[in-house]
């Protein structure tokens, strides 16, 4: 038992150093977001800024950008997207994990194929705007290319196939339970770790997505947080590097706090997710209790 305690210490030291490795740049990010811009240009980024300035944050939150509205859109889209995405994914992944599923391999290939080949931006856009007319609507932020991801389906299928004991399903079948019932009352509760993981991935995906907004949204009322922020980043980048714009570009970005704002943008994108993390970790805990106590 003694060596066990030692083990724990070594393991913890390892994890702490890994965490530090991951956190140091984030700390830099945060402190840079609080540094004045001319200070950044003069002395570079530093871990402990001399003069703390919140000008980047006050610029972002002064109301003219509509950040609060964008937060609202992002949260709504993330919740709807994650829940429906998770439901659809599980409903497709579960049958594929069962050998009774007809055309199982063909369908798995059908899914895998979508992960490699796509029609490209223009055809996808044509279908979504001409047939489904989702441009400038909330659907645009939820449905295209995010709602279901082949990667998650295959991951989930693997989980169902490896972690759900086959005899459990068989005994339920003997008891005469319907497939839907087995799925709801047995598979879902048994699979909380994977629901937690995939749910987290969906959340990250929706939260961080700006590509759909870039493509399908031109009306600023529907800007999600990342859209709003990435638009600023993209514009700065374009204006500074475009030879077409010359000094006009410089003048246009002159009034934006540059270095610190980029960092502030990243920070305000991260914080809400930090708050949401514990929620997902509850799923893991449930998974643990079902797998009963270890070690």
């Amino acid at each position: 038992m003694k060596s066990n305690k030692l083990n724990q210490i070594i393991l913890n030291i390892f994890m702490i150093s890994l965490s530090v490795f991951c956190l140091i740049p984030i700390w830099l990010l945060f402190s840079a977001s609080l540094t004045d811009d001319s200070e950044i240009i003069r002395n570079g980024y530093s871990f402990l800024p001399k003069d703390i300035s919140i000008s980047a944050y006050s610029y972002l939150f002064d109301g003219s950008l509509g950040i609060m509205n964008a937060y609202g859109i992002t949260i709504l889209v993330t919740i709807i997207g994650t829940v429906t995405g998770l439901a659809l994914t599980a409903m497709l992944a579960y049958p594929l994990s069962r050998f009774e599923m007809p055309f199982k391999n063909t369908l798995a290939f059908f899914i895998f194929f979508t992960m490699l080949f796509n029609g490209g931006l223009v055809p996808t856009y044509l279908i979504y705007t001409n047939i489904f007319e989702i441009k400038n609507s909330l659907w645009a932020l939820i449905v295209p290319s995010l709602l279901m991801n082949g990667y998650f389906i295959i991951l989930m299928r693997t989980f169902f196939a490896t972690s759900i004991p086959r005899p459990l399903i068989e005994s339920a079948q003997i008891d005469g339970a319907k497939e839907w019932k087995i799925f709801y009352s047995m598979i879902i509760p048994l699979s909380t770790p994977v629901f937690g993981t995939i749910g987290l991935f969906y959340t990250l995906l929706y939260w961080n997505d700006w590509n759909n907004g870039l493509i399908y949204i031109t009306d600023s009322h529907y800007y999600s947080l990342q859209n709003l922020l990435n638009r600023i980043l993209q514009d700065i980048q374009f204006l500074q590097s475009s030879t077409q714009m010359g000094n006009k570009g410089d003048e246009l970005v002159a009034n934006l706090p540059l270095g610190s704002m980029r960092m502030a943008i990243a920070c305000i994108g991260i914080v809400p997710l930090l708050i949401a993390f514990p929620f997902f970790q509850r799923f893991f805990v449930k998974g643990l209790t079902i797998g009963s106590v270890k070690g």
């Binding site: 223009v122 870039l214 031109t218 638009r231």
Partner: peptide
Amino acid sequence: VPIGFGAYSQQKTLMLSSNE
């Protein structure tokens, strides 16, 4: 319809390839 500078050329391509 104002569009960000960074997104403008892509949006131009998309809007004009559909019939918006």
